[in-house]
């Protein structure tokens, strides 16, 4: 089989190692990043201290987009090749993405009030981000509550494909339409408009968020594998 490396028996021994390594380094790294984000990094020239909200808002938003991208990829893979083990993978990612989308929306509105003068507006970026959160919710519901596995997979694939289109809408919303939300600052092509003194805490926090996602993912995946092996015990 082409997806043999995804089999639980190959992955399981790495899970424990991964979990212990990440849980050992994440706490010191979190404190270091927080010191940079809240104390060392400078104020913004117009936004003052509110710019510090960026250090949780942006990583959370990026990671939630990345999680949905991964889910869509895995879901489509499962649908096309009927690989059972990829189901465990996307089930383990979805709750992380949901939590992060909630964080991105709430911190975003806490950033909006002191800068824009409002907690919420219905502009293209904010609305499409809210839609993403609902996509996560429906996605989780449809694998939790649809007991027919075949049907559940079809529904999940449908949601993830539509959600994938929404993902591109989120990404490009600030460029296509006039929005209250500012356009992107960190560009792969072109000049990044975040000063290096702020880019450092931002990338540190991004790494912290990434490690956190990896940790939760490994723990959730391990739980799913044990759940399956537990069923297997009865059949020996």
């Amino acid at each position: 089989m082409m997806f043999k490396f995804l089999y639980p028996s190959h992955l399981f021994s790495f899970l424990n190692k991964g979990i212990s390594i990440i849980s050992a380094i994440i706490i010191p790294f979190l404190f270091l990043s927080l010191i940079f984000a809240l104390l060392i990094s400078p104020q913004d020239y117009i936004q003052g201290d509110t710019v510090r909200i960026m250090y949780v808002h942006v990583p959370a938003a990026w990671m939630t987009l990345m999680c949905f991208g991964m889910i869509s990829f895995l879901c489509i893979l499962t649908f096309l090749f009927k690989t059972k083990n990829t189901i465990l993978l996307y089930k383990s990612i979805a709750p992380i993405g949901l939590s992060l989308s909630l964080i991105a929306i709430i911190t975003g509105s806490l950033w909006g009030e002191p800068t824009w003068g409002t907690y919420w507006v219905w502009d293209a970026r904010l609305t499409s981000m809210l839609v993403l959160m609902f996509f996560y919710l429906i996605f989780i519901f449809s694998y939790k509550f649809i007991s027919n596995q075949n049907l559940s997979l079809k529904v999940c694939t449908g949601i993830s494909v539509i959600g994938l289109i929404n993902l591109f809408i989120i990404k490009y919303s600030v460029n296509i339409w006039p929005t209250l939300h500012q356009t992107e600052s960190i560009k792969i092509i072109g000049r990044t408009t975040v000063d290096s003194s702020m880019l450092l805490p931002l990338s540190m926090m991004l790494l912290v968020f990434f490690l956190y996602c990896a940790l939760i993912f490994l723990m959730k995946y391990k739980s799913e594998v044990i759940r399956i092996k537990k069923k297997g015990l009865k059949k020996i």
Partner: peptide, 28 residues
């Protein structure tokens, strides 16, 4: 004067992450 927004944003993020961690750990 912006402290209340900044601190509540950080506190909220931490809280959500912490709850998800505890829930995951318990299930495991």
């Amino acid at each position: 004067g912006y402290g209340v927004y900044v601190w509540s944003a950080f506190a909220f993020s931490f809280l959500v992450c912490f709850i998800l961690f505890v829930k995951t750990k318990r299930t495991l």
